[in-house]
Each structure stands twice: as C-alpha cells, then as structure tokens.
C-alpha cells in the first residue's frame, strides 16, 4: 500500500560485523540521491554476538521503517546461516548477496548442535544468490575490517544504485584515514557482482 515504488534492503549478520555502518552509508547515499528513506536497526544486548539486522527502505514516500516478511528486494547477509535465518523476509524474486563466512553460534561451540553444511546450495535453490568471500577480498585489500563495505558495493551493484557518488558518501561517513581503503572496498564489491 506504500505510495509509488518502495524498495527494501535487509542487511543481516552477527553482532560486531559492521552491518550498521554499511546500512548507514547505504541509507545516506539513497537520501542524497533524492529518495525518501527510512532505516531501522536493533542494538543493545543483541550486539553481543547475536543475530542482527539493519533494514533500509527507500522510494517516493516510505511509511514503515520495518521490512515485512516476504517483501525485501535484496538480502545482504554477512554470514551464511544468517542468510537462511532471514530468507523469509525476502520476496520470492528477490536477490541475495551472501558472504562466504561461517561464525559458530554458541550451541555449536559447546557441541550441542552442528553447523549445517549445504546452506549456500539451499539459498541458491530458493533465490538469485551471489556468493562473495568478502573476508578474503578484504584481506587482499589490506584490512579485514572493510568486509562490510565490499558487501555494500556488491549490494549497490545488484540493485542498480552503483552510479551514485559513493566515493563522496563513504568519505563523509568514515574516518579520513580509512576513506581510501573503504572506497577501494566498495569498488571491489561492485566488480565482484559484475562478473
């Protein structure tokens, strides 16, 4: 019922992976491109290694900052199992970009459960999925922490908003010392989706 076309991007991962910064930069860029935007996130106790999500919506006029189940146009997951956890929020014809990364939840660590194999296959069978080894790519760039911006670049490319002034937006949102590597990370992300 939302006016015009409103698109929803769901960024998910594990507390501490940098989803919030990526979502903030994404939302800032969309606003500067002239869209109405809303972004929602949950912080607090869930930061402590729990499952986290940042929700970004943009378009002519956005009402709810929260994405409904079955309505996200793009799922950006920083961790494999989190992609599957949040997949129910994606549209049937949504796209997904998934980081090829496993972070063990506590039940796995203490041996009461096993981390499932075959998650990427399950995802690919359900939805148009692009898999990126963002940690490896970030390592090649020289800083493992820019993994989140690589995924952001990939997401921007997938949803067709990679033509905004991302260099400027990134520079305005990270410390000057890290601006250059984050710009490179964004570019690398777009390249990984172009192939």
């Amino acid at each position: 019922m939302t006016k015009g076309t409103v698109k929803s991007i769901l960024l998910v991962g594990v507390g501490g992976q940098g989803t919030i910064l990526a979502a903030k930069i994404l939302t800032q860029g969309l606003m500067e491109a002239g869209h109405d935007v809303k972004m929602s996130e949950i912080h607090g106790m869930s930061q402590r290694g729990g499952s986290v999500s940042s929700q970004v919506r943009y378009g002519e006029k956005v009402y709810s900052p929260v994405i409904e189940r079955g309505s996200a146009d793009l799922l950006v997951s920083f961790e494999k199992m989190e992609a599957l956890r949040w997949l129910e929020y994606a549209k049937k014809d949504a796209k997904a970009v998934v980081n090829d990364c496993e972070i063990m939840p506590m039940p796995v660590i203490i041996g009461s459960a096993a981390y499932s194999g075959g998650i990427l296959d399950e995802l690919k069978a359900r939805i148009d999925t692009t898999v990126i080894d963002a940690a490896d790519e970030a390592g090649k760039l020289g800083n493992p922490r820019v993994m989140n911006i690589i995924l952001l670049g990939a997401a921007a490319k997938l949803i067709g908003i990679d033509n905004l002034d991302w260099d400027g937006i990134i520079s305005a949102n990270v410390k000057p010392a890290f601006a250059e590597i984050n710009k490179q990370a964004f570019k690398r992300g777009t390249e990984l989706c172009a192939i």
Partner: peptide, 11 residues
C-alpha cells in the same frame, strides 16, 4: 524453505 537446519544464535 527448510528452516530446521537453522541453529539459534543467542547473544
């Protein structure tokens, strides 16, 4: 999809 393989991730 099959959600049974998803392991809880409590903080």
């Amino acid at each position: 999809y099959d959600r049974s393989v998803i392991i809880p991730r409590p903080p």
